[in-house]
């Protein structure tokens, strides 16, 4: 019995900690407005204002306290960051993610966020989103343009989009999220291996390239297996290139000849990618531009050599 008494205070403490915050611990967003007028005066433009406008949400899901926690202690202490239950600048990345995902987890686009590369690298919600001071018109991004946000970390990708020929991301007409899901995507079912990891599927279940390049989708009587089996990146650098068709090489025939060697166990029949025929005199410039004759290189309905 004496032992039991000895543990009683600890048990009481644990019990109190485990209890959810009482309703009286919540003071409502109007109390926050008293001091944080600069934030509250424009908060009606914030998507999170919906919780206040609804008027029927539980206190723990309404306004400021839905993210920052019950504020009675903070108010009672007359302010101070240490008295805010969830001051985001003091939370660990995991705690930030847990707080936001308490409401935002139930979305298809965020179905894989907890195992996404960003989350695993401790890049969580507040690294990209600014809840109170976003300059972006939508999605509360930290920068006005989405590309600037992504370039902030992906320096080498920024370098690729600085190439002379590229998708028009810098010009604002193509967004990173047209092809990528920063919240984590489902596995790329068109490819082997763990990569690419953050690429969003398009048109049901295909590579995102097919969302725009609709004529390459097929099906064709004669498919160029490179497109279907290994994907567009076999020949193309999607971000930027020295070739106007975003090929991996500055001229087309080196791309082709690096595979079409006729050797090994490669290709559809596992007997080598067909070598070009004898009349292709590669010293003659007319044979150095493969797509001049093999026009339908992505797939043809009329010719197995993609002539028409």
């Amino acid at each position: 019995m004496s032992g039991c008494n000895a543990w009683a205070p600890l048990a009481l403490l644990i019990g109190l900690c485990a209890l959810p915050a009482a309703a009286q611990d919540y003071v409502g967003s109007n109390a926050c407005r008293t001091c944080h007028i600069d934030l509250y005066s424009t908060f009606f433009r914030n998507p999170h204002y919906k919780s206040i406008a609804a008027g029927n949400q539980a206190p723990e899901k309404t306004g400021c306290e839905s993210c920052h926690g019950p504020a009675s202690g903070h108010v009672g202490a007359g302010g101070g960051k240490d008295t805010i239950p969830r001051a985001f600048s003091k939370l660990s990345p995991t705690q930030v993610a847990d707080t936001c995902l308490g409401c935002h987890a139930q979305s298809i686009s965020r179905a894989n966020i907890r195992r996404s590369e960003h989350t695993l690298d401790d890049v969580v919600c507040t690294n990209c989103h600014s809840i109170h001071r976003s300059p972006a018109p939508k999605n509360l991004l930290k920068t006005e343009q989405q590309r600037d946000l992504c370039y902030g970390c992906h320096t080498t990708v920024r370098a690729q989009f600085s190439m002379p020929f590229k998708h028009r991301v810098n010009e604002g007409s193509v967004q990173c999220t047209d092809c990528h899901n920063p919240h984590g995507s489902f596995a790329a079912t068109w490819n082997m291996g763990a990569r690419p990891r953050m690429v969003e599927q398009g048109v049901g279940n295909e590579q995102p390239c097919m969302k725009c390049h609709i004529d390459k989708r097929g099906p064709f009587v004669f498919e160029h297996a490179a497109v279907r089996v290994e994907g567009c990146e076999t020949c193309h650098s999607a971000h930027g290139s020295t070739n106007p068709r975003l090929l991996k090489r500055p001229v087309v025939y080196t791309v082709c000849l690096e595979c079409h060697t006729g050797s090994g166990n490669f290709g559809r029949q596992a007997n080598g990618i067909p070598r070009n025929s004898t009349f292709h005199n590669m010293a003659d410039p007319r044979f150095q531009n493969c797509t001049s004759c093999h026009v339908r290189i992505h797939g043809s309905n009329a010719d197995s050599f993609f002539f028409r």
Binding site: R158, Q160, E258, T261, R275, N281, A283, D284
Partner: peptide
């Protein structure tokens, strides 16, 4: 400010006909 260097070197075989 940012700086990036992207190095790529590939070595593959060539099999072709010449006159």
């Amino acid at each position: 400010a940012s700086y990036a260097k992207l190095h790529l070197d590939t070595l593959g075989s060539l099999s072709y006909f010449s006159r």
